[in-house]
Write a protein that binds this DNA or RNA. Structure first.
Length: 877
DNA sequence: TAATCTACGTA
DNA sequence: CGTACGTAGATTAT
């Protein structure tokens, strides 16, 4: 009980523990997709949060070495000289670890010319003198000398850093047979190979302890060294200078001048946003809640700041509600609580008041004029709410702001997915949420009215940060698109269960037959879906040459198998490829089949914040990756049919939209001419590159320039081009040179756009959508070059996405304005699928063609291809 | 059971 | 050593 009042100071040697973690965890298992290794950081932080959670220090610091040089190396040049350079994979991790600790508001201490352990020694000594309980955590055995009744050492076990052994004075005596202050004497005699401090040959711990016990002290032992008999006695006398030197060097400094003392190290609340940022960069997910938990980011302990208490929502009757919204004036936050896709409750808020009510017929009727009118409304994740209102027969008008969309536009790489995330990031507060694991939650969740109030405040914070151009993208592109997507999702697309199930059964039978044949060729049965078992078959049993390395072994992907088939033909390879193809198709068909609703339609969800470039993504099921490339897949597309009550499907796609954007942005005269000439793009480019007439461009030439043109948009290298075209790198290089000799402005544009992004820190589309690229100035080459390719692509892919969205909502709007029953069903990046009502084909075709064609004013035309058919396969031709 | 890896479908 | 996605099954970590 007396100890509860006593402050606890925890000081940690960051470098030594991170280094141990580095070796304890497999480096290959811990790296970001960009190639940054993180095993040392992860291992350290994992240990660190456990430690903090278990020990609950009141004061905390982590010390690091500044370099390998210190006063010890100056006094003894050989000190640690045998240490090999720490691995390159480890080096970069220390600054990132320090960044993590800073985000957690943990004091990071360094001092020129001394080692981290000297800082620990100084703080431990000062802390003990001030009456603290001191915990020292280090992987360096020399810190044993710091142990006293007030100072406990936590020392990692051999395995790694997860288990820490507690060294109290008793534990030291038990382990070494002498009290902690004598440990440096033992170490001086035994030596420390890792520090390049040789000890007395043939003297280990046992002998050292025996001597020290016998003579009482190291000094006494050394002065009476001649009393010791035998070889070891001689060894001792020969190495007396070395022992004295060891003893001098292994004494930790307890009087290092530091800018802070123990009292300055009080534990601070973490910076949640900074921690989220750095952890998401390092791709730590499971660690995040552990850090929040251990570092006391508990909502109960960090109450919302003063002035941030949500108003208590009142529950006016419907008539009062109508009066309330009429009087509200400015923007109103709106939150609909949904159940089964329908609204059950609605909460509204202004800056200082909140109201809410059950979604009854009376309430809906009272609110409808306001809800459907132009009065400005602010929501978080409006799309599901807009859909629910549609199902309930209402329409949301005046959508002025969606915080989720705005947050994504501002930081498209972040995983913020709900109001709670946004409140944390932009208000630095915690959204009150009921604990879903408790039947009777201790903490009340925010009510719908209060959620609306938070939404309004988040919106204000976002607006303050939103650059004008990005605000324009929100208002002029994203919000109109949201409304369109809601209708598309509600409509769904008719899919024939009969067609799918017939095909699925066929494929299952085929896959089975292929598998049997494959087993026969290798005379055993394996799981053809297991990369691990396949590696055994290919590289052990069949002794095929090893392929491209992956994290866990050797690749068995389609490209690799095709290569193997050429160099080392084996029937198994081809059968495996056929099996994969059949299984993949079957799997896609199955996932579609189970998604067909009772009315025969599939409804996807478009994620409007699902990409970093501005594209949509589609999920549950993904209707943006339905196969098209081979013969078989046309049968899948044929299952997407025109629905009952409609006449036909229309498909409309932009041809080469990304190359057209490139022509526009670069202003390259050759490329612009190509698109204005009406000639086939690749034929035109091929003619220029190879110096022949367009009519004389061979298919091989066309293939090459086509790959080159598309590759450009992705930052393709000569290496990549040679691999894709299966040509020599020199030929690929030659091709690129010829290409740029004719279309030089393209290269100039790509280069300058990346350079501009490096200066600005972000890229921008034609319409002002931004994407940040902090890694463009990273010293890490892998990181930087990855960012460069992404930055090169972002304005092009993003502008295409902008153009398609603009076309999409304008088409949607025009269908409504002309009171057409036809409706857009699908968007696949550069293609739209429209369900055309009887008698509306001409109007629909006109609208789609013109709105897609004039969605943007470029220096080259936007070419639109239209197809018509009873199913998606037919319409796509 | 949850996270990760490999493979593969689309633009 | 080519951008942007989502999904499934196997494997590994917990």
């Amino acid at each position: 009980m007396t100890d509860s009042a006593k402050p606890t100071l925890l000081v940690v040697d960051g470098h030594s523990l991170a280094y141990r973690a580095f070796f304890a965890l497999p480096v290959d298992n811990f790296s970001t997709k960009d190639g940054q290794h993180t095993n040392g950081i992860y291992g350290f932080l994992s240990m660190f949060v456990n430690l903090v959670k278990a020990e609950k220090p009141t004061h905390l610091a982590v010390a690091f070495d500044t370099s390998r040089q210190s006063f010890r190396t100056r006094e003894y040049a050989e000190y640690k000289a045998n240490r090999s350079e720490s691995p390159a994979e480890f080096k970069g991790q220390i600054p990132l670890l320090q960044e993590c600790l800073q985000a957690m508001n943990v004091r990071v201490l360094t001092k020129e010319d001394v080692e981290a352990d000297d800082i620990l020694a100084t703080l431990a000594t000062q802390g003990a003198a001030l009456g603290y309980d001191v915990l020292v955590c280090s992987g360096d055995r020399d810190t044993i000398q710091l142990v006293t009744d007030d100072v406990t050492l936590l020392y990692p076990n051999v395995q790694g850093v997860s288990q820490l052994k507690r060294y109290t004075p008793d534990a030291v005596v038990e382990k070494y047979g002498l009290p902690p202050e004598k440990y440096p004497d033992i170490a001086a005699l035994v030596g420390e190979t890792s520090d390049n401090l040789p000890g007395v040959p043939k003297v280990g711990e046992k002998t050292a302890v025996k001597w020290l016990t016998q003579y009482g002290s190291l000094d006494e032992l050394l002065t009476r060294a001649d009393e010791i008999k035998g070889v070891v006695g001689g060894n001792l006398r020969e190495h007396i200078d070395g022992v004295r030197r060891n003893r001098a060097l292994n004494t930790l400094l307890r009087d290092v001048e530091l800018e802070v003392g123990p009292a300055d190290l009080e534990v601070q609340p973490i910076d949640p946003e900074a921690v989220r940022d750095i952890f998401s960069r390092l791709e730590f997910r499971t660690l995040l809640p552990r850090v929040f938990d251990a570092m006391g980011a508990d909502p109960a302990e960090t109450p919302a700041r003063p002035g941030a208490t949500a108003p208590t929502a009142t529950e006016p009757d419907p008539a009062q509600l109508a009066a309330w919204v009429a009087a509200a004036g400015g923007e109103v936050g709106v939150t609909l609580v949904l159940q089964g896709g329908l609204p059950v409750r609605i909460g509204l808020a202004t800056a200082d008041a909140a109201v809410e009510t059950a979604w009854t017929e009376e309430a809906a009727a009272a609110l409808r004029p306001w809800l459907e009118g132009d009065a400005p409304k602010v929501l978080t994740d409006a799309k599901p709410q807009v859909k629910a209102l549609r199902r309930a027969g209402a329409h949301l008008g005046g959508l002025a702001f969606d915080t989720l969309l705005a947050g994504w536009l501002l930081r498209p790489s972040l995983p913020d997915k709900n109001l709670a995330d946004l409140v944390g990031r932009y208000l630095d507060e915690t959204l009150p949420e009921a604990d879903p694991t408790q039947l009777v939650p201790e903490t009340e969740g925010a009510t719908p009215g209060q959620l609306s109030w938070y939404t309004l405040r988040v919106a204000a914070a976002l607006r303050a940060e939103l650059p004008e151009s990005v605000a324009g993208v929100l208002a002029d592109i994203e919000l109109p698109t949201l409304d369109t997507l809601a209708d598309m999702e509600l409509a769904g697309v008719a899919v024939s269960h009969e067609k799918l199930s017939t095909f699925s059964a066929e494929l299952a039978a085929r896959a089975d037959a292929i598998a049997q044949q494959a087993y026969a060729t290798i005379e055993r049965e394996v799981n053809l879906g297991s990369p691990k078992q396949l590696q055994e078959v290919l590289f052990d049993q069949l002794q095929l040459p090893k392929t491209r390395k992956t994290k866990t072994g050797y690749s068995t992907d389609a490209a690799v198998l095709a290569d193997l088939q050429e160099t080392n033909p084996h029937p198994f390879l081809d059968l495996l490829l056929q099996h994969r193809e059949a299984m993949k198709l079957r799997q896609i068909i199955e996932s579609l089949d189970v998604a067909i609703a009772a009315d025969g339609r599939i409804r996807t969800t478009y994620l409007q914040t699902g990409s970093q470039t501005g594209r949509l993504s589609s999920t549950d099921p993904n209707l943006q990756n339905i196969p098209i490339r081979n013969e078989e897949s046309s049968r899948i597309r044929a299952a997407f049919e025109v629905g009952a009550g409609y006449e036909t499907l229309l498909t409309a796609d932009y041809s080469q939209i990304e190359m057209r954007i490139m022509a526009h942005l670069s202003g390259d005269p050759g490329l612009v001419e190509a698109f204005n000439s009406g000639e086939d793009l690749h034929r035109f480019v091929g003619a220029r590159v190879f110096g022949v007439e367009p009519a004389d461009v061979t298919p091989a030439m066309r293939t090459k320039v086509k790959a080159m043109s598309y590759g450009l948009v992705y930052g393709l290298s000569a290496f990549g081009l040679s691999k894709q075209l299966r040509i020599e790198q020199t030929e690929a290089k030659q091709l690129m040179m010829e290409y740029f000799a004719r279309f030089g402005a393209v290269r100039d544009y790509l280069r300058s756009s990346v350079e501009q992004a490096r200066i600005d820190g972000f890229t921008e589309t034609i319409f002002g959508r931004r994407r940040p690229f902090p890694d463009l100035s990273s010293p890490n080459r892998v990181l930087r070059e990855n960012a460069e390719r992404a930055a090169l692509n972002a304005p092009i892919q993003g502008s295409a996405a902008d153009i398609m969205k603009i076309a999409l909502f304008r088409i949607h709007g025009e269908f409504a304005a002309e009171q057409l029953a036809s409706r857009v069903l699908l968007q696949i990046h550069d293609e739209l699928v429209v369900e055309v009502a009887p008698g509306e084909w001409d109007a629909v075709e006109r609208i789609v063609r013109s709105r897609m064609g004039d969605a943007a004013e470029l220096t080259v035309p936007l070419d639109v291809q239209i197809g018509r058919g009873a199913d998606w396969n037919e319409a796509g031709h």
